[in-house]
């Protein structure tokens, strides 16, 4: 008689204990999740609070004013915003096709014994500190570019209609194109390794069927592999873009750090992160410091807008694919 009761009671005890534990666990993970939101919100608010004097003084005009005059205490973010967007864009234009080529080579074309060493080499490249890229850019890349590459670009591309102004200018070697180039080298490992990982997830069946139908390697990658991994590939690209937007040290070395707005990619410019890194230590007036913090908030916004646009694009794509 007892024997039938005890297991029943035990089961009930276990149930309530499980229930309680489950509830506790649920609170714990909810808390962990909310913590991310809270930290993000706190970070955004504290940066905005730090920049309140600048926003109060200059209003929204802070975003599109070109002046950056520490002596006259007039600050505007447009030159750094422009430089940040342009260098990141240049980096993406170079890095995305190169990364795609690397991933395609590693998954479809490279002989088996080559795949692992190249894959590891790419991941090691991702681990090099950005200051090393900056120093390499300044001492190795810049002299080469200013001597051999930029004079040619200035003479040939600089004369073209429409795009000419982008490539005309003195061959200093420093500038937005150089910064974009160094950034591209820095983000290729990120994009390429994500692409390689997701390309490997495509079922061999699919690829072999395509090959059996007489597709070339290009057709297999472009028409079979890429469409089935599109959202993950775009995710990888935006991972790289996020890094390019916020990169500081490497850009500071090769960008030229001039608060000037020029159409030419060969001319020096400035980026948000580089401006903050350069000027924060000696920002001696409250308004100056506040403007630099406000600049940090602008970078926050720029990154947020770019990532939100990426999300939107992904959702559109998913809808079109009927998922």
């Amino acid at each position: 008689m007892n024997a039938s009761v005890i297991p029943w009671r035990g089961a009930a005890g276990r149930d309530t204990r499980d229930l309680r534990a489950d509830r506790r666990f649920r609170w714990l993970v909810t808390g962990a999740g909310m913590l991310v939101l809270a930290i993000l919100l706190a970070a955004a608010l504290s940066i905005a609070w730090g920049g309140r004097e600048a926003f109060h003084q200059f209003g929204l005009g802070f975003l599109w004013s070109k002046t950056w005059d520490p002596v006259g205490q007039q600050f505007g973010a447009w030159v750094p915003i422009y430089g940040t967007l342009v260098t990141a864009f240049v980096a993406m234009v170079i890095a995305v096709p190169v990364s795609f080529g690397i991933a395609m080579f590693l998954t479809e074309i490279a002989p088996k014994p080559l795949r692992a060493p190249i894959g590891i080499a790419i991941e090691l490249l991702a681990g090099i500190p950005s200051i090393i890229y900056g120093m390499w850019g300044l001492f190795v890349l810049v002299p080469q570019l200013s001597e051999h590459v930029y004079p040619w670009i200035d003479a040939h591309l600089g004369q073209l209609p429409l795009v000419g102004p982008l490539f005309a200018g003195p061959p200093l070697g420093l500038g937005m194109l150089t910064a974009g180039l160094v950034l591209a080298i820095m983000i290729v490992p990120f994009i390429a390794s994500v692409m390689r990982e997701v390309f490997l997830t495509v079922p061999t069946r699919l690829k072999e069927s395509a090959y059996a139908l007489g597709s070339t390697r290009w057709e297999v990658v472009w028409d079979v592999v890429l469409p089935s991994t599109r959202s993950a590939v775009i995710g990888g690209i935006f991972l790289g873009l996020g890094r390019a937007l916020g990169e500081t040290m490497a850009v500071t070395f090769v960008l030229g750090n001039a608060h000037e707005l020029t159409a030419s990619l060969l001319m020096p410019g400035n980026s948000i992160a580089a401006t903050i890194a350069n000027e924060f230590a000696e920002a001696d007036s409250p308004m100056y410091r506040s403007s630099l913090v406000a600049l940090g908030f602008v970078l926050f916004l720029v990154t947020f807008v770019v990532l939100a646009a990426a999300r939107l694009m992904l959702r559109r794509l998913a809808k079109r694919e009927g998922r």
Binding site: D69, G256, N257, N278
Partner: peptide, 13 residues
């Protein structure tokens, strides 16, 4: 000032 609005040139760190 310790930094100014330079009319021309490039900036080295």
């Amino acid at each position: 000032g310790t930094s100014v609005d330079w009319p021309t040139g490039i900036g080295g760190k």
